[in-house]
Amino acid sequence: MALYAGVIYPATLGWCLVLLVVGVATLVQVRLHRILEWVVTGMWIVTGIQAIAIVVLLLSGNDAGIVLTLGYLLATIAVLPLLGIGRLGAPDAAAADPDPNRPVLQPDQIARVDAGAAVIIAITAAVLAWRIAIILGAA
Protein backbone atom coordinates (compact mmCIF):
# COMPACT_ATOMS: atom_id res chain seq x y z
CA MET A 1 0.00 0.00 0.00
CA ALA A 2 2.86 2.39 0.81
CA LEU A 3 4.28 1.92 -2.69
CA TYR A 4 0.89 2.59 -4.28
CA ALA A 5 0.02 5.57 -2.08
CA GLY A 6 3.49 7.09 -2.10
CA VAL A 7 4.70 6.47 -5.66
CA ILE A 8 2.24 4.94 -8.12
CA TYR A 9 -0.83 7.07 -7.33
CA PRO A 10 1.09 10.39 -7.35
CA ALA A 11 2.95 9.32 -10.51
CA THR A 12 -0.37 8.54 -12.21
CA LEU A 13 -1.78 11.94 -11.31
CA GLY A 14 1.48 13.57 -12.40
CA TRP A 15 1.41 11.83 -15.78
CA CYS A 16 -2.24 12.87 -16.24
CA LEU A 17 -1.09 16.45 -15.66
CA VAL A 18 1.67 16.02 -18.26
CA LEU A 19 -0.87 14.62 -20.72
CA LEU A 20 -3.19 17.56 -20.04
CA VAL A 21 -0.45 20.17 -20.50
CA VAL A 22 0.97 18.58 -23.66
CA GLY A 23 -2.59 18.16 -25.00
CA VAL A 24 -3.33 21.86 -24.51
CA ALA A 25 0.06 22.78 -25.99
CA THR A 26 -0.61 20.61 -29.05
CA LEU A 27 -3.98 22.31 -29.55
CA VAL A 28 -2.07 25.58 -29.77
CA GLN A 29 0.97 24.30 -31.68
CA VAL A 30 0.29 21.17 -33.76
CA ARG A 31 4.02 20.53 -34.24
CA LEU A 32 4.02 19.14 -30.68
CA HIS A 33 1.94 16.17 -31.85
CA ARG A 34 5.09 14.01 -31.92
CA ILE A 35 5.69 14.71 -28.21
CA LEU A 36 2.03 14.02 -27.48
CA GLU A 37 2.42 10.57 -29.06
CA TRP A 38 5.26 9.80 -26.64
CA VAL A 39 3.22 11.03 -23.69
CA VAL A 40 0.28 8.87 -24.82
CA THR A 41 2.59 5.84 -24.91
CA GLY A 42 3.70 6.75 -21.41
CA MET A 43 0.06 6.96 -20.32
CA TRP A 44 -0.50 3.36 -21.42
CA ILE A 45 2.57 2.28 -19.41
CA VAL A 46 1.56 4.26 -16.32
CA THR A 47 -1.96 2.84 -16.48
CA GLY A 48 -0.57 -0.67 -16.85
CA ILE A 49 1.60 -0.23 -13.76
CA GLN A 50 -1.36 1.26 -11.89
CA ALA A 51 -3.57 -1.68 -12.89
CA ILE A 52 -1.01 -4.25 -11.75
CA ALA A 53 -0.55 -2.43 -8.43
CA ILE A 54 -4.31 -2.31 -7.82
CA VAL A 55 -4.80 -5.98 -8.63
CA VAL A 56 -1.91 -6.88 -6.29
CA LEU A 57 -3.46 -4.72 -3.55
CA LEU A 58 -6.85 -6.39 -3.97
CA LEU A 59 -5.30 -9.87 -3.94
CA SER A 60 -3.30 -9.05 -0.83
CA GLY A 61 -6.47 -8.57 1.20
CA ASN A 62 -7.41 -4.90 0.92
CA ASP A 63 -10.84 -4.13 2.36
CA ALA A 64 -11.92 -2.15 -0.71
CA GLY A 65 -15.03 -3.23 -2.60
CA ILE A 66 -13.78 -5.42 -5.43
CA VAL A 67 -16.68 -4.65 -7.80
CA LEU A 68 -16.32 -0.87 -7.53
CA THR A 69 -12.53 -0.93 -7.66
CA LEU A 70 -12.42 -3.23 -10.69
CA GLY A 71 -15.20 -1.17 -12.30
CA TYR A 72 -13.17 2.00 -12.02
CA LEU A 73 -10.04 0.14 -13.15
CA LEU A 74 -11.81 -1.23 -16.22
CA ALA A 75 -13.13 2.27 -16.98
CA THR A 76 -9.56 3.60 -16.72
CA ILE A 77 -8.40 1.03 -19.28
CA ALA A 78 -11.50 1.45 -21.48
CA VAL A 79 -10.92 5.17 -22.08
CA LEU A 80 -7.28 4.74 -23.16
CA PRO A 81 -8.06 3.69 -26.77
CA LEU A 82 -9.70 7.10 -27.20
CA LEU A 83 -6.19 8.57 -27.01
CA GLY A 84 -4.99 8.92 -30.58
CA ILE A 85 -8.53 8.59 -31.97
CA GLY A 86 -7.47 10.98 -34.73
CA ARG A 87 -5.87 8.00 -36.49
CA LEU A 88 -9.39 6.83 -37.41
CA GLY A 89 -9.71 9.94 -39.58
CA ALA A 90 -6.47 9.30 -41.47
CA PRO A 91 -7.15 9.05 -45.23
CA ASP A 92 -6.05 5.41 -45.51
CA ALA A 93 -8.20 4.38 -42.51
CA ALA A 94 -11.22 6.27 -43.85
CA ALA A 95 -10.75 4.80 -47.32
CA ALA A 96 -11.08 1.30 -45.88
CA ASP A 97 -14.52 2.14 -44.45
CA PRO A 98 -17.54 2.10 -46.78
CA ASP A 99 -19.36 4.56 -44.47
CA PRO A 100 -19.76 7.83 -46.46
CA ASN A 101 -20.10 9.80 -43.21
CA ARG A 102 -16.64 8.80 -42.02
CA PRO A 103 -14.62 12.00 -41.59
CA VAL A 104 -11.30 12.29 -43.41
CA LEU A 105 -8.81 14.47 -41.55
CA GLN A 106 -5.76 16.43 -42.63
CA PRO A 107 -2.57 15.94 -40.55
CA ASP A 108 -3.11 19.16 -38.59
CA GLN A 109 -6.71 18.14 -37.87
CA ILE A 110 -5.53 14.71 -36.66
CA ALA A 111 -3.12 16.47 -34.29
CA ARG A 112 -5.90 18.72 -32.94
CA VAL A 113 -8.31 15.79 -32.49
CA ASP A 114 -5.61 13.82 -30.64
CA ALA A 115 -4.84 16.87 -28.50
CA GLY A 116 -8.50 17.44 -27.59
CA ALA A 117 -8.95 13.77 -26.78
CA ALA A 118 -5.80 13.88 -24.63
CA VAL A 119 -7.22 16.77 -22.59
CA ILE A 120 -10.52 14.92 -22.01
CA ILE A 121 -8.85 11.61 -21.17
CA ALA A 122 -6.26 13.25 -18.89
CA ILE A 123 -9.04 14.73 -16.74
CA THR A 124 -11.03 11.47 -16.84
CA ALA A 125 -8.04 9.30 -15.93
CA ALA A 126 -7.09 11.61 -13.05
CA VAL A 127 -10.62 11.50 -11.63
CA LEU A 128 -10.73 7.70 -11.98
CA ALA A 129 -7.31 7.34 -10.28
CA TRP A 130 -8.51 9.60 -7.47
CA ARG A 131 -11.72 7.57 -7.03
CA ILE A 132 -9.74 4.31 -6.92
CA ALA A 133 -7.33 5.77 -4.38
CA ILE A 134 -10.25 6.82 -2.17
CA ILE A 135 -11.80 3.35 -2.36
CA LEU A 136 -8.45 1.74 -1.54
CA GLY A 137 -7.90 4.18 1.32
CA ALA A 138 -4.79 5.69 -0.23
CA ALA A 139 -6.08 9.25 -0.65
Binding site: A75, A78, G89, P103, V104, V113, G116, A117, I120, I121
Partner: peptide, 24 residues
Amino acid sequence: PIGRILLIVAYAVLGLAATGRSVV
Protein backbone atom coordinates in the same frame (compact mmCIF):
# COMPACT_ATOMS: atom_id res chain seq x y z
CA PRO B 1 -14.84 16.97 -38.17
CA ILE B 2 -12.69 17.99 -35.21
CA GLY B 3 -15.73 19.10 -33.19
CA ARG B 4 -17.60 15.98 -34.19
CA ILE B 5 -14.86 13.55 -33.10
CA LEU B 6 -14.19 15.40 -29.84
CA LEU B 7 -17.91 15.30 -29.08
CA ILE B 8 -17.85 11.54 -29.73
CA VAL B 9 -14.96 11.19 -27.26
CA ALA B 10 -16.71 13.33 -24.64
CA TYR B 11 -20.00 11.46 -24.99
CA ALA B 12 -18.22 8.09 -24.93
CA VAL B 13 -16.48 9.01 -21.66
CA LEU B 14 -19.68 10.39 -20.13
CA GLY B 15 -21.62 7.36 -21.35
CA LEU B 16 -19.08 5.04 -19.74
CA ALA B 17 -19.22 6.95 -16.45
CA ALA B 18 -23.02 7.14 -16.38
CA THR B 19 -23.41 3.50 -17.42
CA GLY B 20 -21.06 2.29 -14.69
CA ARG B 21 -22.78 4.41 -12.07
CA SER B 22 -26.32 3.42 -13.10
CA VAL B 23 -25.54 -0.29 -13.44
CA VAL B 24 -24.20 -0.35 -9.87
